[in-house]
Design a protein around this nucleic acid. Structure first.
Lengths: 199, 199
DNA sequence: GTCTATAAGGCGATAGAC
DNA sequence: GTCTATCGCCTTATAGAC
């Protein structure tokens, strides 16, 4: 049974760690940095988590738990094009609302997925295999244009996560620090996938 | 005037450093790791480069020098759709042939572009602004369908670089370690942009 | 040009008082 | 539960012999 203080501090640590790990990667982050951002001393932080690795694992576990939800919601019984567009919209909203989580994930993958390799070829692949059959079924019925389902999913991931992972570049190129690129991005992606999938 | 030994060792160091930096990021990489991969002792490596930072800077400078070439080649006088498809093809070939360079760049951007911020809002933005005017010109002439030029370029970058940066995930999801995903990727991307831009 | 040895400091983690 | 002090390791970089 966690006390109110424990809950508060644990939450503050995870919040601070998400900030630091997503920006600097696992090795680039320091426990001191996380502790200061959480308003705690270093030994006090290590009173709540046994090690730096443990904090990182806790973050990753929490993330992977929710990472596949948008894809799970893709419904075979729905209107095919709407279902894909809905998935794209949910993924783009995740980039907008949880960019640090996206960068935490991206850091892991780029560095060879040392901690989540089994997840990729297990849970993730299984779900993608399943939903690929749905896509192929829709294609067979003439509901959407022919497309390689796996590369379709790669495209959705790449296009939506780009706005979180490469956020700095997006803003640098658009030039205006204050403008929200997401409304235009949403319209752009909807147009892409509509043209791509309309029979 | 560099001797043959100097040229050989400098090249070996940069080659090894590209391997290590692109996989582990700047902080995650160690000089010892790079030295061993280059077949040199640590002090010997530091005889050729004054610091770890200097090696990284040399790599980044060399990369940025060539990074924009595929976009520079986009020719206003060419056939619009072919020009865009050619750019996509060149970028995808860069992902296939230089995945470590792509990951080196991705690591920098994800971590907030601490070293290349000026490049992004300088050289890169200027070139994108220029080529965006070309895209808009083509749209005005009815040569390609209306599209936001900036988000078009974001899409090209996201879709092509994904195959280098998220290589591990691509292979995990496709399931077969030995299969080359690039032929299918090329066909997929050509179909996307053809459908997207045909008037 | 290349090595062994080592300085100097940062970092993860622990000890022990309060 | 939280702190100060510190251990021990790892890492960057240098000294100095060959």
């Amino acid at each position: 049974m966690a006390t109110r203080i424990q809950q508060k501090n644990t939450a503050a640590i995870l919040e601070a760690a998400l900030d630091v790990f997503s920006t600097h990667g696992f090795r680039g982050a320091t426990v001191d940095q996380i502790a200061r951002a959480a308003g705690l001393s270093k030994p006090n932080l290590l009173y709540y988590f046994p090690s730096k690795e443990a904090i990182h694992t806790a973050l990753l576990d929490g993330l992977l738990e929710a990472w596949l939800d948008p894809l799970r919601a893709l419904d075979e019984a729905g209107e095919p094009l709407d279902e894909v567009l809905g998935y794209v919209r949910r993924k783009l909203e995740m980039s907008r609302d949880f960019p640090r989580e996206s960068r935490l994930f991206a850091n892991e993958i780029i560095q060879g997925a040392p901690r989540i390799g089994p997840y990729l070829s297990g849970e993730l692949k299984d779900l993608v295999d399943e939903k690929s059959r749905v896509i192929r079924h829709w294609i067979g019925d003439g509901k959407i244009a022919p497309v390689d389902p796996y590369h379709l999913f790669f495209s959705i991931w790449a296009l939506t996560q780009h706005y979180a992972d490469f956020d700095v570049q997006v803003h640098a190129v658009l030039g205006s620090k204050d403008i929200d690129p997401y409304p235009d991005a949403q319209a752009h992606l909807e147009a892409i996938f509509t043209r791509m999938l309309r029979p």
